[in-house]
């Protein structure tokens, strides 16, 4: 374990040095993320100019939900996005050989090569959104509640990570598939919606089959209404299940990898 921590720290150090070299890139991407977060927040505030409730959620409750969803996504962007995005490209180009030759868990090595400081910095903005919404709602969560919320965010990160790995792994089977990362972004859109908004078939697919709704709703519920074992267990189960599925599919895909370089 400490060996992997060392490897990760080395990657992080390398990423920080890189960021310092390409400062303009850092500012540009930090702004890009900030803008996209604002787009989501702006949409919510415009809708609430015209209505008081979305599926029974008030404006600041919804802000807390969207903030939570953005927080999980920022962590994914900060810690894993660049590495996994390149993974897809490397599988197509054949550069993935480089990772196969490394002495360590392949998925770990391929997922943690780069850390994006802009994503991590914007996670503080997302935390600010959640804190602001909690403040406007007059919430006073205990230290235990906050710890539980943090744990649930980690579970959420595991689920988002798994969804992204699953989407990228498609490249093992369909090497011509460009833009498959879009699958992840499309699914993540659903995590900004309250559970109560889903009915019928949508509820079956997005609440029960895919973990996109529970990822954001479970932690938001914990802050709003206190600890509810059902939500916590559902989230934990989803995290384990989807991580298992991601690891399994990734390794099945690995067998098909034929070093497609020319």
């Amino acid at each position: 374990m400490p060996r992997y921590l060392q490897i990760w720290l080395a990657s992080a150090r390398y990423s920080i040095v890189r960021t310092l070299m390409f400062r303009f890139d850092f500012f540009l991407w930090a702004t890009v993320e900030l803008f996209w977060m604002s787009v989501n927040l702006l949409m919510i505030s415009v809708i609430y100019e015209h209505t008081n409730s979305i599926a029974g959620w008030s404006k600041y409750e919804m802000l807390l939900l969207v903030g939570t969803s953005l927080l999980v996504q920022r962590f994914l962007m900060g810690f894993f996005w660049s590495s996994l995005f390149e993974l897809g490209r490397n599988i197509r180009s054949g550069y993935f050989d480089f990772f196969l030759a490394q002495p360590g868990n392949i998925l770990f090595m391929a997922s943690t090569r780069k850390v994006d400081l802009d994503g991590i910095m914007n996670s503080f903005v997302a935390m600010g959104v959640v804190a602001y919404a909690a403040h406007r709602l007059g919430l006073h969560p205990s230290a235990a509640d906050i710890a539980l919320y943090a744990l649930m965010i980690v579970c959420g990160l595991v689920i988002h990570y798994s969804m992204l790995v699953l989407s990228i792994s498609i490249a093992f089977w369909i090497t011509s598939a460009q833009g498959i990362e879009g699958i992840y972004f499309t699914l993540a859109e659903f995590s900004r919606l309250p559970r109560e908004a889903f009915r019928g078939l949508a509820s079956l697919v997005f609440v029960w089959l895919l973990p996109v709704v529970v990822v954001s709703n479970a932690p938001a519920h914990t802050l709003l209404h206190g600890f509810q074992p059902v939500w916590a267990l559902a989230l934990l189960a989803a995290a384990l299940l989807w991580l298992g599925a991601a690891i399994f599919v990734f390794h099945r895909g690995l067998r098909r990898y034929s070093s497609a370089s020319s």
Partner: peptide
């Protein structure tokens, strides 16, 4: 899928 998000979000906004 984007249309599904729009449908669900605005459907919920129109519920009240």
């Amino acid at each position: 899928f984007h249309l599904a998000v729009v449908f669900i979000l605005w459907g919920a906004a129109y519920s009240g």
